[in-house]
Structure formats: structure tokens, C-alpha cells
Amino acid sequence: MKKYLNNLITCVICFIFIVILNFALPRLMSGDPVAYLTGVDEESMSVVQYEYYRNALHLNDNIFVQFGYYIKSLFDGSLGYSYRMEATVSSLILSRIGATLQISLVAVVVSCGIALVWGLSAGSKKGTFDKISTTANVIINTLPSFTVGMLLIILFCFGVKIFPYSGLNSPNIEKGTAEYFFDRIYHLILPVTTLTVTFLPSRYLIVRNTARAVLNEKYLLFARQRGLGRRKIKYGYILGNVAQPFIAMVGMSVGASIGGSVVVENLFSIQGMGTLLTDAVYALDYPLMQGVLFVTAFIAVISIIITDVICILTDPKLRRARL
């Protein structure tokens, strides 16, 4: 119990540190953020406008005051205001985060699910199935994410023209209809598959190795001698041991998935949070950069906390200890 409490406290401290980091990082970059508000081709911004923006971005105040405004923007839900985009950061992120989550969360669920089933089956007994599966996964693990994406595009978009290669929807379908919903799924299949295939092997390997390690335990040998069916052993004993590391792994893979989504969004021309971040970096849009970093870190930390809590709740040792 104490270990998990410590973990939770560490999460919170982490989070505070990330908040500070989000604030500091963009300001380390050189350049004048105000200059980006009118773009390169327009005539120079007038002095009144320039002063206005400098004040609005609090660039004239010292660093602590700026930090204070940043913290305030976190609490009042706006996450700051992007003058370049003329919208609150939270509204910009909200409009894009749907796409990113649709890809990364689905990929997490699917890849972890497949990894669990496959890894358990392979780890529960030695034999050719295990050898082939593991070899296949090792090979796929060596492919970087963009390669997987490109292969899929080449095979399924240009080779056999089944799937669309860009965007989230076809242009001529009405929003809000059932057709729109299925069209969205149609467009999401390849991006989700890319992320799934990229992350599946490492998750499969974790499950399989944990299962294999348990396999050598004496009590399993005993259970088999006693005649317990293979299935009962698999789901009763091995799963129990695999569950803990598995749940922790799921929590951490959410953060990795969001990062992986940046590459996928790039490949498939999807307007998600990843592209929002790269745009913000190019234009020194401080408020937007801070906001995206914050949201990404927030999601990653929350998912770790949630999975840790689930771990605590499902840990029989702890449950018994509490009684």
C-alpha cells in the first residue's frame, strides 16, 4: 500500500514539474513571438498593436508574473489565449483532440488487447506457436512507425485501392449522419492499424515474457501434475501474475501512443493535436505550445494514475491486507 501511495505522490510531483517545464521550454526559444501575429507578408504591425500584444502576452512583465498568469490560465479552463489563432487554447485543443484520441486510444485498446491474448497463449506453453509468434513480433518490432504506415499506404491505398490515404472523412458526406460515422471509421482504420502494429510487438513481448517467467514456477508444475486443465492454468494462474505489469504497461502506453500519433497524423494528413504542436513550435505561439504540452502530459499522467489505482484495487495481496 505504501508503495502505491508513494507512487501517487510521485505522480503529483511529476505533474507539477511538468507544468513548470511547459512554461519554461517555449520561452527558451529565440525570436519575437509578437512578430508572428501578422505573418511574414503583411506590412509591419503598427506600434499600438505591437504594444497591445506585448501587454496581452505579458511579455513586459517579469518571469514570475508571467508564470502566475500561466497558472491562472490553467485553472480557469482556458489554458491561455492564442493571439495568432484568435481563439482560446482550450477551444483549439478541443477541436483537435478528438482526432488524436480517436486514433491513439483505440490503438492502445486494440494493441493491448491483442497483446494480452496472443502473449498469454504464446507464453503459456513452449512450442512452435510461441517460436513463430515471437519471431514475427521481433521482426515487426524493428520497423519504425512511419515505415509501417508507409507500407500500409502503399499496400492498401495505392496497390489495392481499398482505403483512403488522407483525412478523416470524405468531403461530400453530411455531418451527423450514420453514414458519417461509418465513413469516419473507414478513414480511421489505417491510422489506427499503423499505431497498433507499431506498438503491438513490444507489448506482446512484455506479456509473453512475464507469462513465460511464471511458467517456470513450481506451483504451476504442481497444478499441471494435479491435472488442472490448460485453460484453467492459463486464465487462472498465469493471467493473475501477468495482470499487474500488464495494467501498468497499459497506463504508460497511452503517453507513448499520443507521441506516436504525431507521426501518424503527419503521414495521413490528419488535423490532430500533433500537427497543432508542430505548427505552434514553428510560429513561437507560446500559449498554444504550453497548452498542448500541458494537455499531453496531463493525459499521460492521468492514465498512469488510473492504472495504478486499478492495480491497487485488483491486487489480492492488498485486498487481503485491508480486511
Binding site: M29, S30, G31, D32, V34, A35, Y36, V40, S44, V281, Y282, A283, L284
Partner: peptide, 16 residues
């Protein structure tokens, strides 16, 4: 792009 503008145009290099 940001650094490029800072290095090559008057408007964006003024802050430095």
C-alpha cells in the same frame, strides 16, 4: 521557420 525568419528578416529579428 521561426529561426529562419529571425535570421533573415528585419521584423522578426527586432526582438533580439
Amino acid at each position: 521557420s521561426n529561426t529562419f525568419n529571425v535570421k533573415t528578416s528585419n521584423k522578426f529579428s527586432s526582438d533580439n
